[in-house]
Simulated scan of single mutants.
Amino acid sequence: MNVEYFINASASLSQHIRTDIKLSFYLYGHLNDIETIDGKGKVHPRGAIIHQLQVGLRYKLLLQLSDYVYQRNPSERRIVKLLGFAESNLESIPWKTVPSRSSLKEQRAKLDAVAAQIEKMQYVRNKFFAHVDHEYVIDPDASLCNALPSIDDLCALLNVLASILIFIDRNLGRRREIGYDAWCDIECRQFAAELLHVHR
């Protein structure tokens, strides 16, 4: 890794977090707000599809987030490599505001705080995706659906990754071009509203 790669890689990862991954979380959240069975026991006509979309979004988020934090050697994790390069090349990087070494260590500590979520995600990735374990075929309790990290665990990891990348962005003086949160929220809310309209 060199300085140019560090700048481009951190920008790419930051944009990916703020757009595609956050869109998935917003969509999951708004789908989760839809009552698939109402108070009278009436099933939403798109209830099965809504459930499949939610499960698929959790699979997608698991794989995307694991790409940021998974490697057999923890020092080779993408987000850790970025922080390591920043620490080792503090004077070479064209920061707008040079971060202190203690502030960079604080970013690493954020990852330590979600170590349990990362470990579970790595376990599921290895057991069900990278090295398929056929136990789940004959044991329903070992199925992928039951093993998936909760959306809260995935969200906690997302928030940590986003916080670290925002830290790098700000110290590089990189402007966040668009406020994607509002756009993601509106688009997903409208999609959920259309599903509800079909129900009525």
Rank of each mutant, 00 (worst) to 15 (best):
Met1His: 06
Tyr5Val: 15
Ile7Asn: 00
Ser10Asn: 08
Ser10Lys: 12
Ser14Pro: 06
His16Val: 08
Ile21Val: 13
Ile21Trp: 03
Ser24His: 10
Tyr26Ala: 11
Leu27Val: 04
Leu27Tyr: 04
Tyr28Asn: 04
His30Asp: 08
Ile37Cys: 01
Asp38Thr: 10
Gly41Lys: 12
Pro45Asn: 05
Ile50Asp: 02
Gln54His: 06
Val55Glu: 09
Val55Cys: 02
Leu57His: 03
Leu57Ser: 03
Arg58Tyr: 00
Leu62Asp: 01
Val69Phe: 06
Arg77Phe: 02
Gly84Thr: 15
Leu90Ser: 04
Leu90Pro: 01
Trp95Ser: 13
Ser100Glu: 07
Ser103Gln: 10
Ser103His: 02
Glu106Lys: 10
Glu106Arg: 07
Arg108Thr: 14
Lys110Pro: 00
Leu111Asp: 04
Val124Thr: 10
Asn126Glu: 11
Phe128Thr: 08
Phe129Ser: 07
Tyr136Arg: 09
Pro140Cys: 06
Ser143Gly: 02
Cys145Gln: 12
Asn146Tyr: 04
Ala147Ser: 13
Asp152Trp: 11
Asp153Gly: 05
Leu154Tyr: 08
Leu158Phe: 09
Ser163Gln: 08
Leu165Cys: 09
Ile168Asp: 01
Arg170Pro: 01
Asn171Pro: 04
Leu172Asn: 06
Arg174Asp: 03
Arg175Tyr: 02
Tyr180Glu: 08
Trp183His: 08
Cys184Leu: 01
Cys184Ala: 14
Cys184Tyr: 00
Glu187Phe: 04
Arg189Gly: 00
Gln190Met: 11
Gln190Glu: 12
Ala192Val: 14
Val198Thr: 09
